[in-house]
Simulated assay, not measured.
Amino acid sequence: MNSQEHYTPPHIVKMAREVLGGIDLDPCSSDLANRVVRASVHITSQQDGIKSAWRKQFWNQGVSVWCNPPGSRHIKPSLPMQFWEKLCKEVAKGNVSHALYLAYSLEQLQQCQKAGYPPMAQFPLCIPRRRIAFIDMDGNEQKSPTHGNVIVYIPGMIDNTEGFKRVFSQLGYVKV
């Protein structure tokens, strides 16, 4: 696949909805991806979820966020790291009630430390037993996932760490 777009499989989105109690915002989405995610509000690449205000633009209180950023090797820092930094800043501002971040690669655990971002490993996380077979832009499951993944739970105003552990332990090892 030549695209940066790697959509989340429906069974993982369902798990995310269960932990978050629904998804208010997907800041790095598309109209196609949101057919599965069903976020109340989604921000497309044209709208730029990194530069957009997450709280003031949409709600008067914190939002539950699902974040599966597009990959990019040509932008420094990478788009996933830019979305990680934005998510951490929005949590710190009190704009996010709680969130889930899907890192396409276990290497992101290392990258966020090198770049000075809050380490993903300080939060509850799930390392799936198998690589996630993302969905391509045509709606087909990718045949050969190239990276191991990690799903990070970021508590904000709401802390559902126990729910994260219960739900995502079905997918793989959960560290809280």
Rank of each mutant, 00 (worst) to 15 (best):
T8E: 01
P9I: 15
P10S: 07
H11Q: 12
V13G: 04
K14T: 13
M15W: 10
M15S: 14
A16H: 01
E18S: 11
L20H: 07
G21F: 04
G21M: 10
L25A: 02
S29E: 07
S29T: 13
S30F: 00
L32R: 11
R35D: 04
V36M: 00
V37S: 03
A39H: 05
S40G: 06
H42D: 00
D48Q: 08
K51E: 02
W54A: 00
Q57L: 06
Q57K: 15
Q57R: 15
F58H: 14
W59D: 10
W59N: 08
P69I: 14
S72G: 12
R73L: 06
I75K: 11
I75W: 02
P77H: 08
S78P: 02
L79F: 07
P80Q: 07
F83H: 15
W84N: 11
E85I: 09
C88R: 15
K89N: 11
K93M: 10
N95S: 15
V96S: 01
S97Q: 06
H98T: 13
H98M: 11
H98A: 12
A99M: 03
A103R: 08
Q110V: 15
Q111V: 04
Q113S: 07
K114G: 05
K114E: 15
Y117D: 09
P118N: 11
M120I: 13
Q122V: 13
F123W: 13
C126D: 05
P128L: 07
R129H: 08
R131A: 09
I132H: 03
I132G: 01
I135S: 04
I135E: 06
D136W: 01
D138M: 02
G139E: 05
Q142C: 06
K143D: 09
P145D: 11
T146F: 00
V150F: 00
I151F: 03
P155C: 09
N160F: 01
E162D: 15
K165F: 01
K165T: 08
V167R: 12
F168C: 07
Q170M: 04
Q170K: 14
L171A: 06
V174A: 01
K175R: 10
K175G: 03
K175M: 08
